[in-house]
Amino acid sequence: MNRPLKVALLALAVSTFSATAQAHRTWLLPSATVLSGKDLWVTVDAAVSNDLFYFEHHPLRLDGLEVLAPDGTKLTPEHVNTGRYRSTFDIKLGGPGTYKIMVLNQGVFARYKLDGQNKRWRGKPEQMKSEIPANATDVEVSELQGRIETFVTSGKPTTDTFKPTGRGLELVPVTHPNNLVAGEKATFRLVLDGQPAAGLKVEIVPGGIRYRDKLNDTRVTTDESGTFSYTWPGPGMYWMSASVRDDNSRIKDARRRASYTATLEVLPP
Protein backbone atom coordinates (compact mmCIF):
# COMPACT_ATOMS: atom_id res chain seq x y z
CA MET A 1 0.00 0.00 0.00
CA ASN A 2 1.46 3.35 -0.92
CA ARG A 3 1.89 5.83 1.82
CA PRO A 4 -0.58 8.60 0.79
CA LEU A 5 -3.38 6.02 0.47
CA LYS A 6 -2.53 4.61 3.89
CA VAL A 7 -2.71 8.07 5.42
CA ALA A 8 -6.01 8.74 3.68
CA LEU A 9 -7.47 5.49 4.99
CA LEU A 10 -6.22 6.26 8.47
CA ALA A 11 -7.85 9.67 8.30
CA LEU A 12 -11.06 8.07 7.16
CA ALA A 13 -10.89 5.60 10.03
CA VAL A 14 -10.32 8.44 12.49
CA SER A 15 -13.21 10.51 11.17
CA THR A 16 -15.51 7.47 11.12
CA PHE A 17 -14.54 6.77 14.70
CA SER A 18 -15.27 10.33 15.75
CA ALA A 19 -18.65 10.23 14.00
CA THR A 20 -19.46 7.06 15.95
CA ALA A 21 -18.24 8.67 19.14
CA GLN A 22 -20.68 11.54 18.62
CA ALA A 23 -23.54 9.12 17.99
CA HIS A 24 -23.30 7.94 21.57
CA ARG A 25 -26.13 9.20 23.68
CA THR A 26 -25.67 10.92 27.00
CA TRP A 27 -28.40 10.68 29.59
CA LEU A 28 -29.64 10.94 33.14
CA LEU A 29 -32.15 8.35 34.30
CA PRO A 30 -34.08 9.13 37.51
CA SER A 31 -35.61 6.34 39.63
CA ALA A 32 -38.93 8.20 39.61
CA THR A 33 -40.27 11.44 38.12
CA VAL A 34 -43.68 11.73 39.80
CA LEU A 35 -43.68 11.30 43.58
CA SER A 36 -46.02 11.65 46.51
CA GLY A 37 -45.44 11.63 50.26
CA LYS A 38 -42.55 12.96 52.32
CA ASP A 39 -38.91 12.09 53.11
CA LEU A 40 -38.47 11.32 49.43
CA TRP A 41 -35.28 10.29 47.69
CA VAL A 42 -34.55 9.97 44.01
CA THR A 43 -31.54 8.10 42.68
CA VAL A 44 -30.18 8.90 39.25
CA ASP A 45 -28.05 6.90 36.78
CA ALA A 46 -25.86 8.90 34.42
CA ALA A 47 -24.20 7.31 31.42
CA VAL A 48 -23.00 7.58 27.83
CA SER A 49 -24.26 4.68 25.74
CA ASN A 50 -25.54 3.50 22.37
CA ASP A 51 -28.75 1.90 23.57
CA LEU A 52 -31.27 3.73 25.73
CA PHE A 53 -31.32 3.43 28.67
CA TYR A 54 -28.63 0.81 29.25
CA PHE A 55 -25.31 1.56 30.83
CA GLU A 56 -22.99 -0.32 28.49
CA HIS A 57 -20.28 2.09 27.39
CA HIS A 58 -19.04 4.92 29.61
CA PRO A 59 -20.13 6.63 32.81
CA LEU A 60 -21.22 10.24 32.46
CA ARG A 61 -18.71 12.53 34.21
CA LEU A 62 -20.47 14.48 36.94
CA ASP A 63 -18.13 17.49 37.15
CA GLY A 64 -20.92 19.76 35.95
CA LEU A 65 -23.72 18.26 38.05
CA GLU A 66 -26.24 20.73 39.46
CA VAL A 67 -29.59 20.17 41.14
CA LEU A 68 -32.09 23.00 41.46
CA ALA A 69 -34.81 22.75 44.13
CA PRO A 70 -38.30 24.14 43.38
CA ASP A 71 -37.39 27.47 45.01
CA GLY A 72 -34.30 27.83 42.81
CA THR A 73 -31.73 26.99 45.50
CA LYS A 74 -29.02 24.43 44.75
CA LEU A 75 -29.19 21.01 46.36
CA THR A 76 -26.10 18.94 47.08
CA PRO A 77 -26.33 15.44 45.60
CA GLU A 78 -25.38 12.59 47.92
CA HIS A 79 -23.66 9.21 47.42
CA VAL A 80 -22.03 10.38 44.23
CA ASN A 81 -20.17 7.54 42.55
CA THR A 82 -18.63 6.92 39.16
CA GLY A 83 -18.24 3.28 38.17
CA ARG A 84 -17.08 1.51 35.06
CA TYR A 85 -20.29 1.97 33.07
CA ARG A 86 -22.34 4.53 34.92
CA SER A 87 -22.30 7.26 37.50
CA THR A 88 -24.96 7.42 40.19
CA PHE A 89 -26.08 9.93 42.78
CA ASP A 90 -28.98 10.43 45.17
CA ILE A 91 -31.07 13.50 45.83
CA LYS A 92 -33.07 14.03 49.00
CA LEU A 93 -36.10 16.07 48.00
CA GLY A 94 -36.72 18.88 50.42
CA GLY A 95 -40.38 19.62 49.76
CA PRO A 96 -43.09 19.67 47.11
CA GLY A 97 -42.47 21.05 43.63
CA THR A 98 -40.34 20.43 40.56
CA TYR A 99 -36.61 19.70 40.77
CA LYS A 100 -34.30 20.21 37.81
CA ILE A 101 -31.29 17.89 37.60
CA MET A 102 -28.61 18.85 35.10
CA VAL A 103 -25.10 18.11 33.98
CA LEU A 104 -23.46 21.06 32.27
CA ASN A 105 -20.49 20.24 30.09
CA GLN A 106 -18.71 23.50 29.41
CA GLY A 107 -15.35 23.30 27.79
CA VAL A 108 -13.17 23.62 24.74
CA PHE A 109 -12.27 21.04 22.13
CA ALA A 110 -9.38 21.64 19.77
CA ARG A 111 -7.75 19.86 16.84
CA TYR A 112 -4.34 20.93 15.64
CA LYS A 113 -1.24 19.78 13.85
CA LEU A 114 2.15 19.57 15.50
CA ASP A 115 5.19 18.48 13.44
CA GLY A 116 2.80 17.10 10.82
CA GLN A 117 0.84 15.02 13.35
CA ASN A 118 -2.89 15.43 14.15
CA LYS A 119 -3.59 16.20 17.77
CA ARG A 120 -6.77 16.60 19.84
CA TRP A 121 -7.19 18.46 23.07
CA ARG A 122 -10.01 19.01 25.51
CA GLY A 123 -10.05 21.34 28.48
CA LYS A 124 -11.07 24.66 29.88
CA PRO A 125 -10.78 27.96 27.96
CA GLU A 126 -8.16 29.33 30.37
CA GLN A 127 -5.93 26.25 29.87
CA MET A 128 -5.80 26.67 26.10
CA LYS A 129 -2.87 29.06 26.02
CA SER A 130 -0.59 26.93 28.13
CA GLU A 131 -1.62 23.49 26.84
CA ILE A 132 -1.82 23.97 23.07
CA PRO A 133 1.79 24.44 21.87
CA ALA A 134 2.61 27.81 20.38
CA ASN A 135 4.01 26.18 17.23
CA ALA A 136 0.83 24.19 16.55
CA THR A 137 -0.70 24.77 13.12
CA ASP A 138 -4.20 24.29 11.64
CA VAL A 139 -5.75 24.93 15.04
CA GLU A 140 -9.52 24.44 15.02
CA VAL A 141 -11.21 25.35 18.29
CA SER A 142 -14.77 24.50 19.32
CA GLU A 143 -16.42 25.80 22.44
CA LEU A 144 -18.79 23.20 23.91
CA GLN A 145 -21.95 24.13 25.76
CA GLY A 146 -23.61 20.86 26.67
CA ARG A 147 -26.68 20.61 28.86
CA ILE A 148 -28.15 17.27 29.96
CA GLU A 149 -31.29 17.42 32.05
CA THR A 150 -34.11 15.56 33.72
CA PHE A 151 -36.96 16.64 35.98
CA VAL A 152 -38.68 15.18 39.03
CA THR A 153 -41.74 16.46 40.84
CA SER A 154 -43.03 15.82 44.33
CA GLY A 155 -46.69 16.77 44.70
CA LYS A 156 -47.89 19.65 42.56
CA PRO A 157 -45.66 20.57 39.58
CA THR A 158 -44.02 24.00 39.71
CA THR A 159 -42.23 26.03 37.03
CA ASP A 160 -39.80 28.29 38.88
CA THR A 161 -36.77 26.22 37.82
CA PHE A 162 -37.52 26.60 34.09
CA LYS A 163 -36.17 30.12 33.71
CA PRO A 164 -33.37 29.97 31.09
CA THR A 165 -29.91 31.25 31.99
CA GLY A 166 -29.46 32.79 28.54
CA ARG A 167 -26.36 30.73 27.76
CA GLY A 168 -26.34 27.85 25.29
CA LEU A 169 -29.29 25.72 24.23
CA GLU A 170 -32.05 25.43 26.84
CA LEU A 171 -35.54 24.01 27.13
CA VAL A 172 -38.47 26.19 28.16
CA PRO A 173 -41.36 23.82 28.82
CA VAL A 174 -44.84 24.81 27.66
CA THR A 175 -46.20 21.43 28.74
CA HIS A 176 -44.80 20.56 32.16
CA PRO A 177 -42.14 17.81 31.72
CA ASN A 178 -43.57 15.86 34.68
CA ASN A 179 -47.11 15.95 33.31
CA LEU A 180 -46.66 13.80 30.20
CA VAL A 181 -49.15 11.09 29.27
CA ALA A 182 -49.19 8.65 26.34
CA GLY A 183 -51.51 9.76 23.54
CA GLU A 184 -51.32 13.40 24.60
CA LYS A 185 -49.46 16.16 22.81
CA ALA A 186 -46.61 17.92 24.59
CA THR A 187 -45.20 21.31 23.56
CA PHE A 188 -41.76 22.68 24.39
CA ARG A 189 -39.60 25.64 23.34
CA LEU A 190 -35.89 25.66 22.72
CA VAL A 191 -33.91 28.84 23.19
CA LEU A 192 -30.32 29.54 22.16
CA ASP A 193 -28.67 32.19 24.33
CA GLY A 194 -32.18 33.06 25.49
CA GLN A 195 -33.45 33.67 21.93
CA PRO A 196 -35.85 31.37 20.01
CA ALA A 197 -33.93 28.46 18.42
CA ALA A 198 -35.79 28.35 15.10
CA GLY A 199 -35.55 25.59 12.50
CA LEU A 200 -33.74 23.22 14.85
CA LYS A 201 -34.11 19.46 14.48
CA VAL A 202 -35.02 17.69 17.71
CA GLU A 203 -34.52 13.95 17.94
CA ILE A 204 -36.85 11.95 20.16
CA VAL A 205 -36.11 8.29 20.91
CA PRO A 206 -38.08 6.00 23.23
CA GLY A 207 -36.09 3.87 25.69
CA GLY A 208 -35.96 0.08 25.58
CA ILE A 209 -33.94 -0.06 22.35
CA ARG A 210 -32.35 -3.37 23.30
CA TYR A 211 -35.63 -5.22 22.98
CA ARG A 212 -36.73 -4.05 19.56
CA ASP A 213 -35.32 -4.06 16.01
CA LYS A 214 -36.17 -0.51 15.04
CA LEU A 215 -34.87 2.64 16.67
CA ASN A 216 -38.34 4.29 16.37
CA ASP A 217 -36.75 7.73 16.45
CA THR A 218 -38.62 10.85 15.42
CA ARG A 219 -37.28 14.20 14.28
CA VAL A 220 -39.37 17.29 14.80
CA THR A 221 -38.37 20.80 13.72
CA THR A 222 -38.80 23.89 15.84
CA ASP A 223 -40.83 26.78 14.38
CA GLU A 224 -39.85 30.47 14.35
CA SER A 225 -40.50 30.80 18.06
CA GLY A 226 -38.35 27.71 18.79
CA THR A 227 -41.49 25.76 19.63
CA PHE A 228 -42.17 22.12 18.78
CA SER A 229 -44.82 19.58 19.68
CA TYR A 230 -44.89 15.82 19.88
CA THR A 231 -47.63 13.32 20.68
CA TRP A 232 -46.24 10.49 22.81
CA PRO A 233 -47.01 7.17 21.12
CA GLY A 234 -46.76 5.15 24.34
CA PRO A 235 -45.66 5.28 27.96
CA GLY A 236 -42.01 4.98 28.98
CA MET A 237 -38.79 6.95 29.26
CA TYR A 238 -37.88 9.11 26.24
CA TRP A 239 -34.60 10.68 25.19
CA MET A 240 -34.82 14.07 23.51
CA SER A 241 -31.87 15.88 22.01
CA ALA A 242 -30.90 18.80 19.77
CA SER A 243 -27.68 20.61 18.93
CA VAL A 244 -26.46 23.69 17.12
CA ARG A 245 -23.14 24.66 15.57
CA ASP A 246 -22.42 28.32 14.98
CA ASP A 247 -19.76 31.01 15.26
CA ASN A 248 -21.16 32.60 18.42
CA SER A 249 -18.32 31.57 20.70
CA ARG A 250 -16.84 33.86 23.30
CA ILE A 251 -13.45 32.42 22.39
CA LYS A 252 -11.66 34.16 19.55
CA ASP A 253 -11.78 32.32 16.19
CA ALA A 254 -13.65 29.42 17.73
CA ARG A 255 -16.81 27.68 16.62
CA ARG A 256 -19.50 26.87 19.17
CA ARG A 257 -21.40 23.61 19.65
CA ALA A 258 -24.42 23.96 21.93
CA SER A 259 -26.44 20.88 22.75
CA TYR A 260 -29.47 20.06 24.84
CA THR A 261 -30.56 16.60 25.99
CA ALA A 262 -33.39 15.61 28.30
CA THR A 263 -34.82 12.38 29.66
CA LEU A 264 -38.60 12.54 30.01
CA GLU A 265 -41.00 10.04 31.50
CA VAL A 266 -44.36 9.50 29.83
CA LEU A 267 -46.98 7.75 31.96
CA PRO A 268 -49.81 5.49 30.75
CA PRO A 269 -53.17 7.25 30.29
Binding site: V34, S36, G37, P268
Partner: peptide, 12 residues
Protein backbone atom coordinates in the same frame (compact mmCIF):
# COMPACT_ATOMS: atom_id res chain seq x y z
CA UNK B 1 -45.06 9.00 60.13
CA UNK B 2 -47.60 9.43 57.33
CA UNK B 3 -45.52 7.25 55.03
CA UNK B 4 -48.71 5.86 53.49
CA UNK B 5 -48.85 8.97 51.30
CA UNK B 6 -45.91 7.55 49.30
CA UNK B 7 -48.24 5.39 47.18
CA UNK B 8 -50.98 7.96 46.55
CA UNK B 9 -49.41 8.73 43.18
CA UNK B 10 -50.03 5.15 42.06
CA UNK B 11 -53.67 6.14 41.57
CA UNK B 12 -52.10 8.00 38.71
Amino acid sequence: DGEGTKWLKDMR
